[in-house]
Design a protein around this nucleic acid. Structure first.
Lengths: 158, 158
DNA sequence: TATTGTTATACTCTATAACTATA
DNA sequence: TATAGTTATAGAGTATAACAATA
């Protein structure tokens, strides 16, 4: 595997110790995952982040906008614009609750719920298409470790 | 662990199946890794990507600009601007080889080499500071899996 | 004609701070 | 005075296409 198909057409690039740097590897891995995601969804006119927000709102109707933003690491300013686009598109309904009129509660419209449901399989198919190079077991292991590292699975049933 | 410190101050957010999506987890993980990286380098006036490019040029003096860009997933247009900044800063020297005058070969100046050397420890310290939540063994496992997934370690000694 | 790198443009995401309206 | 969200602005990263020089 060392002298095999490595000299294909490109000069060899030595990466040294950064090949073991989490930050560096995560950047490359994310680019790869996004690539294969978008490759499977040619007709999809949404950003990954937008769909994710719709998904989370669908699972947590009535949640405050800021809560979702913090959980998904979206900055308030960005969140505002994203929500505005989704409201304009008719996928999200905003509601100002009487008990705290500063906050905004979000829910999917019927149209939004339909959109999430319709693209659900394609979206979750990521698992299958995106794990190039890894065995099923390794992919599962990777996901478990990332859950732990990010703290995402913290309070979940797992 | 389920009823413990979860109701700290924030409403509970249900993520459902996307908590197992590689793309989603990689995005969060990358944000976290970058955060802790920049936290350890308060006085560092470089972007992560810029330092990475300098690093790789240091290990591969004379390599073509495009080769490095492809390996690091940097788009040609972006690479051009990045190189221009580094040349202006005095860290990179460009050389047009006689045998193919379209290409640009890159090498570090003495100043560039000194900069890479000086920040080497802080840069590689990522390993130590950035693996919050993971045991040493798990961090190693994660890095191995990411190496495999991204194909980075493909032709390396490992 | 094809390739390497450059320029120009636009769009997304991010970062920041000032602002409003509520509390 | 603090908080939730908004607006405005700027910067970084990316995508794209048109271009020049060279092969």
């Amino acid at each position: 595997m060392r002298d095999a198909a490595e000299t294909i057409d490109e000069e060899r690039v030595e990466l040294g110790e950064i090949a073991h740097s989490l930050g560096f590897l995560l950047r490359l891995a994310q680019l790869k995952a996004f690539d294969s995601f978008y490759k499977t969804l040619l007709d999809f006119d949404f950003k990954l982040g937008e769909y994710t927000v719709l998904w989370v709102i669908g699972l947590n109707p009535g949640l405050r906008q800021g809560t979702i933003a913090r959980k998904l690491n979206i900055k308030p300013a960005h969140m505002t614009k994203l929500v505005q686009r989704m409201v304009a598109a008719g996928y999200i309904a905003r509601e100002i609750p009487a008990d705290d009129r500063r906050s905004v509660h979000l829910a999917l419209t019927d149209e939004g719920a339909a959109l999430v449901a319709k693209n659900r399989d394609a979206f979750l198919n990521q698992h299958l298409t995106e794990r190039d190079g890894l065995s099923e077991k390794e992919a599962t292991q990777l996901i478990v470790l990332l859950n732990k590292y990010t703290g995402v699975g913290g309070g979940e049933k797992e």
